[in-house]
Computed example of a mutant assay.
Amino acid sequence: MARLDDRAREVVFRTEGLTKTYDTGEVQVHALAGVDLELFGSELTVLLGPSGSGKSTLLNILGGLDRPSGGRFWFRETELTRASDRQLTRYRRDHVGFVFQFYNLVPSLNARENVQLVTDVAKRPMKPAEALELVGLGHRMDHFPAQMSGGEQQRVAIARAIAKRPDVLLCDEPTGALDSHTGTQVLSTLQRINDEFGTTTAVITHNAAIRLMAHRVIRFQDGRIDRIEENDSRLAATEIHW
């Protein structure tokens, strides 16, 4: 797969000197120690680094789930640094899709109903069946989470995230609970969404092999960006082995 040379260099996220400190009482933990970063439209970015290096904290701030201790950050032209709770809720609802390591599906709802939880409140949603078809689960939409494999449940979670047609998709260890074969299916789904819809996608992982499917790779260490790499060519998720 070729690099995204012709992508519009729209800056979707920008941070300046972003910091985050957690006060545990006896000690302060500096999760982010001054992060300057740009994420661009339509790109798939992989964030690599050891546990505690700041990856999840950054994604939670960009997604409006957490607030920084210092610095500034923007979504497109809108600064969100001091946005109110109501503004952040609207921002998450209208612009951001989340995929986490654990699927967070409602056990008493079938796949279609789990996706419908999002489409009922979105501005311009897909039909739940359409979103499930996109992730290859059109034949499983009436099944409940307990009747599905881990990979299928994660793909339902992806369908739920994309059903509101988000501008950005933020994924925190989406294959962390899956074996390599099932993880490849999930990564293929994310790659397809990025390629077909141009959804700006950021994927946190400990798995260095996954970097090969990214347009750019951002390596974190001790709350800072250690380095940024750009792939001249990308592998399809099905070509990645770990």
Rank of each mutant, 00 (worst) to 15 (best):
K164L: 03
A157S: 14
R165S: 08
A159I: 08
D142R: 15
L134V: 08
L134K: 01
K164F: 01
Q154E: 10
V156C: 02
R160H: 13
A146I: 03
R165Q: 14
L137K: 00
R160F: 13
H143P: 02
K164H: 11
M141E: 15
R160D: 15
Q154C: 07
L134H: 01
A163P: 07
E152H: 06
S149N: 13
G136L: 05
K164G: 10
A161L: 08
R140M: 09
V135F: 00
R165F: 06
E152R: 05
A146P: 00
S149V: 14
V135A: 04
D142G: 15
A159D: 07
F144I: 02
E152N: 06
M148W: 06
R160Q: 12
M141S: 05
A146G: 14
S149M: 11
A161Y: 02
R155S: 03
R160P: 12
A146W: 06
G138Q: 03
S149C: 10
P145D: 02
G138N: 03
A163W: 05
G136E: 02
I158T: 07
V135G: 00
G138T: 03
P145N: 12
I158Q: 12
V156Q: 02
G138H: 01
F144Y: 15
K164I: 00
M148F: 09
V156G: 02
A161V: 10
A161D: 04
L137R: 00
A159H: 07
V156F: 05
G136Q: 00
A161I: 06
H139Q: 13
R155V: 05
Q153M: 15
I158A: 07
Q153V: 14
M148D: 06
G138F: 01
R165D: 10
R165K: 13
Q153Y: 08
Q147V: 01
Q154N: 11
R155F: 04
Q154H: 07
M141G: 02
Q154G: 07
I162R: 04
M141N: 07
G136R: 00
G138I: 01
D142L: 14
R160T: 14
R160Y: 12
H139N: 12
M148T: 09
K164C: 01
S149Y: 11
E152W: 00
F144G: 09
Q147K: 06
I162Q: 08
D142Q: 14
A159T: 10
A159C: 12
V135Y: 00
Q147N: 07
R140S: 10
V135M: 03
R155H: 09
K164V: 00
M141I: 09
M141Q: 15
G151M: 09
A161M: 08
H143K: 15
H143V: 05
A146H: 14
A159S: 09
R140E: 02
R155N: 10
L137N: 01
A146R: 15
K164Y: 03
V135E: 04
I162M: 08
A161F: 03
A157C: 09
A159M: 11
M141H: 12
G150K: 02
F144T: 05
H143L: 09
G151E: 14
M148H: 06
A157N: 05
M148S: 08
I162C: 03
A146E: 08
I158V: 14
